[in-house]
Design a protein around this nucleic acid. Sequence first.
DNA 1: AATCCACGTTGTACTATACAACTACTTCAA
DNA 2: TTGAAGTAGTTGTATAGTACAACGTGGATT
Lengths: 144, 144
Amino acid sequence: MAHRDDSVETIQQELTAFARRARATAARIHPELSLVSYTLLAHLDDQQGCRATDLAAHYLLDKSTVSRQIAALERLGFVERRLDPADHRVQVLHPTEEGAQVLANASNSRRQAFHERLADWSEADLDRFALYLLRYNAAQERLG
Amino acid sequence: MAHRDDSVETIQQELTAFARRARATAARIHPELSLVSYTLLAHLDDQQGCRATDLAAHYLLDKSTVSRQIAALERLGFVERRLDPADHRVQVLHPTEEGAQVLANASNSRRQAFHERLADWSEADLDRFALYLLRYNAAQERLG
DNA sequence: AATCCACGTTGTACTATACAACTACTTCAA
DNA sequence: TTGAAGTAGTTGTATAGTACAACGTGGATT
């Protein structure tokens, strides 16, 4: 049990340290994209467009927060709104050409950074680490 | 290489999801402690007191940020300042009795939450996960 | 039609943060 | 020994991100 406690303690410490660093580091993922706006834009990109309400629900953000984030992305020219012809309350949000481009760039440098950090890991270790993270996140989702 | 890419992709996704959730969830770790104030208080506790400057350096926060966080903790009665007799510029910060108590409570519920999330993990898996996290964080530290 | 609901915006407030200017104290060197 | 330079911490100011509440507009239900 002592060993078990030690491992859990380490996991807790390291995840906490990671979260702290993530806050500091990832505030600007790209000169013009914060972690939040990056995430929202990425979601629009791989959902092929969606509504502000969907973003709010998916990321547990208030709709006013999403509204302002989207407004900012629109000012930057990265997102455009298309009124849903079937329901005039709804705006379907899409990345613009430029938005998709910026997203692709940000996404590539981000991916590259991960590859660098994990460069000397064996394939087996990468695989296990990925599975552990999935398992941990699923548990956290389940247990709140 | 495809498999390698897949694993890295998953790791990236899951760590990002974790960071996002951490922001939302850990804002209040305890009715009166945010993640930051909890962290600072914990540091004071296991360093047996330290200076505001040390906290700033250790957690990469501006000294003004630390100053205000500490001021808040002092208002709550969780931290006290002791003027360093040898250098009157310096205030050595210590948790108060009450601060130590609140910290212990917060720390215990936090530990318990981790134990619950990891309850059904084998000891071998816990051990490996802990090592992977250490390794990952060390790499991130090294590579920025 | 009247009522209720859904979508999104805006007003307001709060927290966390950084940077810059400042005060108080210390150290060091001429 | 004194004055210049450096260090610890606070305060003024600005910004980002967020939530909640109130609102306007448009749909849906009865």
